[in-house]
């Protein structure tokens, strides 16, 4: 009997053959990818805001240049990812519309405020660190354009993480005020960072299908554990602590045990009640709305120019 399209598709996935935009794919696979990739693109764009806050206040010209380059990289990541999503038949404008209307989500970590310079270090170290943990497996995602975009993103993210760690290392060797600035930032960002891996496995409804389709390779809890294990060691190098009294090495498991995550906070932030949800979205909407006349001018000019060229050619 002839294989159904769906079975043929799954067979390709099982044999690790990449799915390309023109290949047949189940509608749900397409929709899952659009949701995930656009959410990821939006996170890059919204993620520019909390760090962008500190470009004009960076404490040295070197730090300013590095931070500016980093935030600009995030814009570039947004661009690759929007392009990858567009191969699935959705336009960038449609994705923006979904973001601005609140239908599309973005990583809830960016709804927390950046209050001190040390937050820039911590975002690089913890937030980009957690992002890398999530994203490295995505370089092997079954969907070709997504996987290829992620290869480029991951290269740059590892540079971002190093610069964050280096900011903190400098603060750790600095004055008492700088050390407490850094510890305070770690205390504020730690729990939101480990929430970045998403809900617990048994409460993550899309995970099973995404793993079967090899969009996802590891579960939320596996990645979270891996991140905690790595970070618990790195924090010792910095001479700071993580704000979890239950964090301790469990020899039998070969992993760190950790305290209970406040999932209520996680869901509240996702539902729009985080400290900066409104500001972040408003900032994006404002940029988009105030840019309307600029985009209109650019397209009117292109139309006129093409018309003139056609006239000349004729």
């Amino acid at each position: 009997m002839e294989k159904t399209s769906e079975a043929f598709f799954q067979d390709k996935i099982d044999r690790e053959i990449r799915i390309e935009p023109k290949d047949w794919m189940p509608e749900k696979y397409r929709q899952t990818l659009i949701r995930q990739i656009s959410q990821h693109a939006h996170s890059e764009i919204i993620g520019m805001l909390p760090e962008g806050n500190w470009i004009t206040r960076a404490p040295s010209l070197r730090r300013k240049a590095i931070l500016l380059a980093k935030v600009q990289d995030e814009a570039g990541h947004g661009l690759y990812l929007y392009s990858a999503a567009e191969t699935l038949g959705i336009s960038r404008d449609e994705m923006y519309e979904q973001l601005h209307s609140g239908r599309a989500k973005y990583s809830s970590i960016f709804n927390y405020p950046t209050l001190s310079w040390a937050d820039i270090g911590v975002i690089g170290w913890l937030v980009d660190g957690a992002a890398i943990m999530n994203q490295v497996p995505l370089c092997r995602s079954s969907f070709g354009p997504y996987a290829r975009a992620m290869v480029r993103v991951c290269k740059e993210e590892s540079f971002h993480q190093r610069q964050g760690f280096e900011i903190l290392l400098t603060l750790s060797r600095g004055t008492e005020a700088q050390r407490s600035m850094a510890q305070d930032a770690i205390n504020r960002w730690w729990w939101p960072s480990i929430m970045m891996f998403g809900p617990k496995d048994d409460e993550s409804p899309n995970s099973v299908q995404s793993m079967k389709w090899k969009i996802k390779r590891f579960s939320n809890d596996e990645l979270r554990q891996k991140f905690i294990d790595v970070t618990a060691e790195q924090v010792k190098v910095l001479g700071f602590t993580l704000p979890d009294p239950n964090l301790k090495w469990n020899k039998a498991r070969g992993h760190y045990d950790y305290g209970a995550i406040n999932w209520d906070e996680f869901w509240q932030v996702i539902q729009g009640n985080g400290p900066c949800n409104k500001e972040r979205l408003e900032a994006r909407k404002k940029a988009w709305e105030e840019g309307e006349w600029v985009r209109a001018a650019a397209s009117a000019y292109t139309t006129k120019k093409n018309k003139r060229n056609t006239t000349v050619a004729a």
Binding site: T56, Q72, A75, A283, G291, V294
Partner: peptide, 12 residues
């Protein structure tokens, strides 16, 4: 640099 994150088009 004040435009970073607030431009009218991502490419710009």
């Amino acid at each position: 640099s004040e435009w970073c994150g607030h431009g009218p088009v991502l490419e710009q």
